[in-house]
Design a protein around this nucleic acid. Structure first.
Lengths: 352, 352
DNA sequence: GCAAAAATGATATACGTCTATCAAAAATGA
DNA sequence: TCATTTTTGATAGACGTATATCATTTTTGC
């Protein structure tokens, strides 16, 4: 019942171990005939290389890097923390992960950080990216060196990365739109939207998806133009307070960050409040959900994404195919299906 | 930069390799003083056992078994298929998984199957279980033999398993209730519920959760007593058709299976239909969502659960702690956040 | 202080792969 | 045919751990 080794394959193929090895690790200088014989034996015996033994022999250590935005944003805190946790549990598989912080949304600094990666010999890099063409050159260099590159949470230029691990933001916006539409129960209404900046691609995409659904399927619900907040909680608070005085407002949707401000404003209000949808489950959005200050959180489950980043990077580095993993989709949280996530609970409610 | 080996630890502790080994693998016959010295050296050097080398040396193969209900139920088909996929991708880590099918909901046969496992030397077993005390004895025997046992999708008696990998069905019902409530947009209404059988613990729990939320938070929405369907699509179809003729019905909720019948009945109807919520995303519920025949699917993501079962079983077998994994929660699907899941698409819409 | 028991050290083999080396055999070219 | 190149075979050491054996040292109980 013990699985066949490369020696077994060699014997079955009628060649020496050395030749079988040459084929398996395509070292060249092998006759086509021998290659064929070995390949046949491999499939006949169902040989699978013992990765443990291989890595042991190679003394391989997977060096990974995660480039994430700096700053005290609750969402990115959550991300960095989870990377640390996950990394700690990967040491036993000889995987090391280093978190490198970069100023948020600063193309130039990100560019520099990517170039700096060239000096360190990482095997794989996950980058919370920006879709700026300026990143293409340094990323191409990195990949030319054989480094596996994936976009995480926020995508990179498509050609510059091997994979994107994150949700489809149009779908996220559509989902929010669907929920807001449903919550009107066939009645009319007005939704006030908020966004950090429409230069941020994900914000624009979410808003577009949101509009799409409401326009098409819930025409009786009007979508007001977004208020720009720079993801600043102060701004959100002030704007929300003002907006709440309006008549006929039935829903609020913030595609960006700064939710602590929005929540603070809602906490102040009395009477029936509009239906509220925000993004990303962090300590304060969770609390607000429990306290019935908001109704819905659309989350991208960054922890799942990070776990996946580890898996995908390893697969890319070893050039093997990916294990079956379900698609990443925007997750809808209400107060009844919240994860008992220790991490989220521990996090202090900092600015978002 | 290379990580310390056990020899390094031994040297640092001032003991022989053999003694260090005795401590690490607690083989006994070691003086407390030596144990302490080795432990110190371990933390001082940050020694982590190289699992690859260890497993290589042991020639360890993890033999896992999955006990799942037999039959052509779409949900369980999906489960079995995913187990196969996942297993194929685990061979390179020397993990084998065997699917053993058992008649659905038959305590006695399940009991026999568990006893039969005793003869085969599995390292770990995941069981789609039943909460019957009759299972306690055979499970206890199994665990006494050192086999790791987890409940999957549907729990086992608590004392009889090391972990339960599945969602909280009360939470699932609450989530459905919340969504139905929200969809009424403050207006009143009547929800017709359907269940396979209230003997099935998960059905009862979902229904209870559903009622809880509507009673507490949406008192203007009345919950009608469940129609029993035996999870039979034929029954569901007939009952749904009848129910649809009633005046004032604003929502339908099926906690169990047999959705293809419910969907068929809805397809026939015209005009405004009630708000419809069902469980488990399979080919036909997905199609119905896309075709706007239903509004919401609450899914437990069995594929995620299965991946987790592999991870948890391995951790249990090796007696190491679990990697950080986000909680399993009931997932809400609308037509806008569906996964592009090849598996689901491929599945033929069979009976559920 | 002596015998018995407990603890330790030294060491060898095995796991399956990678990598390298050197000699031998086969194929190729002129 | 002979020299050259290509292909093959044989083999050995290394990776870090598990496991076993046997001899030696230390501790324990009386």
């Amino acid at each position: 019942m013990t699985s066949p080794t490369l020696s077994d394959v060699a014997r079955a193929a009628g060649v020496s171990y050395a030749t079988a090895d040459r084929v398996i690790n395509n070292r060249g200088n092998v006759a086509d005939k021998s290659i064929a014989k070995v390949r046949e034996a491999v499939t006949a015996l169902g040989y699978v290389r013992n990765v443990a033994a291989a890595n042991l022999s190679r003394g391989r250590i997977y060096k990974l890097a995660f480039l994430t935005p700096r700053g005290s944003n609750a969402f990115f805190n959550r991300i960095r923390q989870h990377i640390g946790h996950a990394a700690a549990h990967h040491v036993s598989e000889r995987v090391t992960a280093e978190v490198i912080e970069v100023a948020a949304f600063a193309v130039e600094e990100l560019q520099d950080s990517i170039s700096a990666l060239l000096e360190r010999d990482f095997d794989g890099v996950a980058i919370v990216g920006l879709q700026s063409a300026a990143l293409e050159a340094p990323l191409a260099e990195l990949r030319a060196k054989g480094v596996a590159v994936v976009g995480l949470v926020s995508d990179l230029p498509h050609a510059a990365r091997a994979a994107y691990i994150g949700i489809d933001n149009i779908a996220a916006g559509r989902t929010a739109g669907r929920m807001v539409g449903l919550a009107h129960g066939g009645q009319g209404g007005q939704v006030q939207t908020f966004a950090g900046s429409l230069d941020a691609r994900d914000h624009a995409e979410r808003l577009a998806g949101f509009r799409e659904v409401l326009t098409a399927d819930f025409p009786q619900v009007a979508v007001l133009d977004p208020i720009m907040t720079k993801d600043d909680a102060q701004v959100l608070r002030a704007q929300t307070q003002e907006v709440l005085t309006q008549q006929g407002l039935t829903a609020l949707y913030n595609v960006g960050a700064g939710n602590s401000g929005l929540i603070a404003a809602l906490r102040g209000g009395q009477g029936k409040r509009p239906f509220c949808v925000v993004h990303e489950l962090v300590a304060h959005s969770r609390q607000a959900l429990m306290a019935r200050q908001i109704d819905l959180v659309i989350d991208q489950r960054p922890d799942v994404e990070i776990n996946r980043a580890f898996t995908v990077l390893r697969a890319l580095i070893d050039a093997k195919d990916l294990p079956p993993m379900p698609d990443l989709v925007p997750t809808i949280y209400v107060r009844d299906n919240l994860p008992a996530d220790a991490l989220t609970d521990q996090m202090k409610a900092q600015d978002t």
